[in-house]
Design a protein around this nucleic acid. Sequence first.
DNA 1: AAGGTGACCGGCC
DNA 2: TGGCCGGCCACCT
Length: 110
Amino acid sequence: MAEPTDNFFSRVYAIAQQIPYGKVTSYGAIAKALGAARSARMVGWAMNACHDMDEVPAHRVVNRKGLLTGKHHFEGTNLMQQLLESEGVVVVDNQIIDFEKHFWEPEIQF
DNA sequence: AAGGTGACCGGCC
DNA sequence: TGGCCGGCCACCT
């Protein structure tokens, strides 16, 4: 499952890899960039498999509220927060401060 | 082949 | 902001 499948996953990874340093985005934004704003859950599902992929900054992907929902899927309990803070993103109680400020909208690409 | 699952989103209170 | 509910769609068993 660690092979570059040409399904939805690769698309999500492609967007995730485009997230600039110190920036974050939401699942819905990625889904929207893929032309499927209603499939936000699929983005999360793809991230679930991102463990098999490399260069996929899933820690820069949070839900619309700026909450680190996927934190539990990372190693340890605060790895995701550590990575974000390391990039200059302030995270408190699994929540990003000034989420809108660090928010980055992926380019629309089909 | 059919059903269950999920790191979500949007609307409403 | 927070909680509840319905919808949505690809992946897995």
